[in-house]
Amino acid sequence: MTVLVTGADGYIGWPTALRIANRTDDRVLLVDNFARREWVEEVGATSATPVASIDERIRAAEETLGVSNMSFVEGDLTERAFVDELLQVHEPHTVVHAAAQPSAPYSQINGERANYTQHNNMQATRNLLWGLEENDLTDTHFVETTTTGVYGAPEFPIPEGGATMENQGEADDVPFPAMAGSWYHLTKSHDAANMRLAHKQFDIPISDVRTAITYGTETAETREDDRLKTRFDFDYYFGTVTHRFCAQAVAGYPVTVYGKGEQRKPFVSLEDAVEGLAQLALSDADDRPEGLTVYNQVTRAISIVEIAETIADVGSEFELDVAVEHFENPRDEDETHKMEIANERYDDLIGGQAQSFEEGVEDIFETLTRYADTIEAHEDRFLPGVLE
């Protein structure tokens, strides 16, 4: 039995593969083309934490955790021949698809990056879904990390997947409409639609895990050895809001809140995100939901101002003097929007939130204060720069 994890060199993909391998005797096959490392370098940034090579990571997992069931294949999922060979040779019973260009700001730089993001993300997903059909692997559980960004920012509470639509006295359950706000987020909207179609046509069991903004530096496994650390991006293009704010605090910069910052967005800790994906990957056919199931991978909604104030409070415990300043918002968004999003299905999956936002920020500062020199050397990357 084989679990295939794509994007296994990435921020979520690596600790997910590590947890799965640590909990099963099944073979865990990691796949990546290391493009994330190239994208971050392209925008002049770097991971705050040193990222070991994949070979060193796997070796550290065996030496530290006793994990000996991980192996790695380098390849590009947009190449259909590679995907077909991968599936034919390894015949996975589960695919955890975490490979994508994940940055909305990167996808908005220009038409070239928008086209690249859409081709890269959607082609990879289509190749995997059609590969399962054409290689007689339609019993394989397909788990993809999409994004809560497919929902946009509606004024009503967001359901976990779909909604009931009424028209002229008749009603039916329908998928949530794509309301994505970036070229990246729209790739995940298309992925969600393609997964629905693949389930309908091929009867592939699918878990669409709509991942919220993820924060944190550690999971239970990565704490055991520095070689097991996952990456931590803090620049404008690849650093999420919490990570960028924490890095600014470590570098002695004020935390830069765009606009009023009262808008509430969905968040999940790295620990809780990894746990949900591992639970799905390790579930057998009798335990997982039948058909296509959508999970909102969210533990709570937090306003940007609350994030900044929490970081300032926790930062004081690390002897950091953190100021919060407001700047003109370069993004077209409602700065007072109060998002409400259902997460009952995901909460049941992970057995409740394991790490609070405050605990996640403490983890981040514990890690980043060790690498302050790296952050300070790239502090010009906190704000958008001019790229060709």
Rank of each mutant, 00 (worst) to 15 (best):
V96C: 08
R19C: 08
L87N: 04
Q88Y: 11
T94H: 10
E38T: 13
R36T: 14
A60M: 00
N33P: 08
F72D: 01
S53I: 00
A61P: 10
H90T: 06
L30A: 12
A61V: 02
L87Y: 08
L86I: 02
E41A: 14
I54P: 09
T94P: 12
S71C: 05
W39Q: 12
R59P: 05
L87P: 13
R27T: 11
S68P: 07
V95S: 09
P92N: 01
D26F: 04
M70V: 09
S71R: 07
A61S: 11
F72R: 05
V95Y: 06
E74L: 06
T64V: 07
R23M: 12
H93N: 09
I54K: 10
G44S: 04
S47P: 05
V31P: 11
T78V: 11
R57H: 12
P50W: 04
A48P: 07
G44V: 03
E38L: 10
L86W: 06
T46R: 14
E85A: 15
W14I: 02
F82Y: 08
L86A: 07
V43H: 06
L18Y: 02
V73M: 04
A52W: 01
T16V: 12
V95N: 04
E79A: 10
L87H: 07
L87F: 08
T64E: 03
